[in-house]
Structure formats: C-alpha cells, structure tokens
C-alpha cells in the first residue's frame, strides 16, 4: 500500500478559504501555528489535557492538538483570530476584558472559543453549566472566578447574529 506523503488540502479558516500542502501526520494545531501563522491558538500540552489549543471545527470546540490536519480538510475552522468580525469583538471577548477573566492570557483563546460555542447552544446558563462547559480547559493562574463571571455576563449581552 502506498502512503500518500503530501496532501493538497483546503480549509475554511475564519471565513476564508486557505489552500496548502500538508503531511498526513501534522496536527491541525501545528498547521495553524506553524504553516498559517495563527499563533493565537496555543500549544500548552500537546496531549489533550489543557485546552489551550481549542479551535472551533464546524462550530464545535476541539483540541486542535488531537485533530490531524487532513481530517479537518474542507471544514470550517474558527480560531481566536476569527472571532472578531469587522473589528467588533465577540461578546465573550468583551466580557473577558470587562470582568478581568484574564491573567497571563495563555489559556484565554481556548476559554473564549469554548465559551462562545457553549453560549451559542445555551442561552441563559447557570454557573454550574458554565463550569461543566469549561471543564476541559485549564487556567493555571486559576482565574476561574473571573472567567465564570465573564461568561455569565456575556450570556446576558445577547447573542451575536451568526453568519
């Protein structure tokens, strides 16, 4: 059996079609950071533990370190850089600023993306629902009180109309 060494693929990243040649063992995280320069997606553990590399794949949060880039070909991917539309912050982003849901900020893109997908599904969450939804993301600064406040506040800001 012949293994295809190089794949020509495209992704729909942050609303734009991006074509590139990749190798089959490259992870989506590596392609985003190293090939496309989207360094807002962070590598915290590379082993599906911390959630710093979270991106939205077809609007669902995934650990991009656990997705092979070839698996994601042709799919819609949203990274933290794509959450801001036409210079306007996503309500979750604004809330994290207003409620100090940030310390060192390394985990922030992952938390913000996970929270944005969660709020798309859950209109008026309880604090416990927020905790459950974010339990796959680690913040070692442990800014969890302020992160929960940020997400709850964003849920009250009203949903942004999706494109």
């Amino acid at each position: 059996m012949k293994i295809k060494k190089r794949w020509k693929v495209f992704f729909l990243i942050n609303g734009k079609r991006r074509s590139l040649t990749i190798e089959p063992h490259w992870t989506l995280l590596e392609v985003l950071r190293d090939q496309l320069g989207l360094t807002g997606t962070k590598k915290g553990c590379d082993r599906a533990e911390c959630g710093s590399c979270t991106v939205l794949l077809e609007r669902e949060p995934v650990y991009s370190c656990q997705v092979l880039a070839v698996q994601a070909r042709g799919q819609r991917i949203t990274t933290i850089e794509g959450l801001t539309r036409n210079g306007k912050l996503h309500p979750v982003q604004q809330s994290f600023i207003d409620h100090d849901g940030v310390q060192c900020g390394f985990c922030t893109p992952g938390f913000v993306l996970t929270a944005s997908a969660f709020l798309d599904r859950t209109r008026r969450p309880t604090p416990d629902q927020v905790k459950q939804a974010l339990s796959g993301n680690i913040c070692r600064c442990n800014a969890y009180v302020k992160i929960i406040e940020s997400v709850l506040s964003a849920s009250k800001r009203g949903k942004r109309i999706r494109d």
């Binding site: 989207l38 994290f96 207003d98 100090d100 900020g105 390394f106 922030t108």
Partner: peptide, 23 residues
C-alpha cells in the same frame, strides 16, 4: 480603581505575542 488589565484586548483576540509565537 479597577483599571482594565493592560494587554487584555490582545489576550482575548489572540494577538498577544508570547516568546513561543515569535518566528
């Protein structure tokens, strides 16, 4: 006063540059 944390905007938009992001 609880001034907004410096760099918060960069951090929530993924623009904040950490050493590992430099090329």
């Amino acid at each position: 006063k609880s001034l907004t944390r410096l760099g918060a905007l960069e951090k929530v938009t993924g623009r904040s540059q950490y050493t590992g992001d430099l090329t």
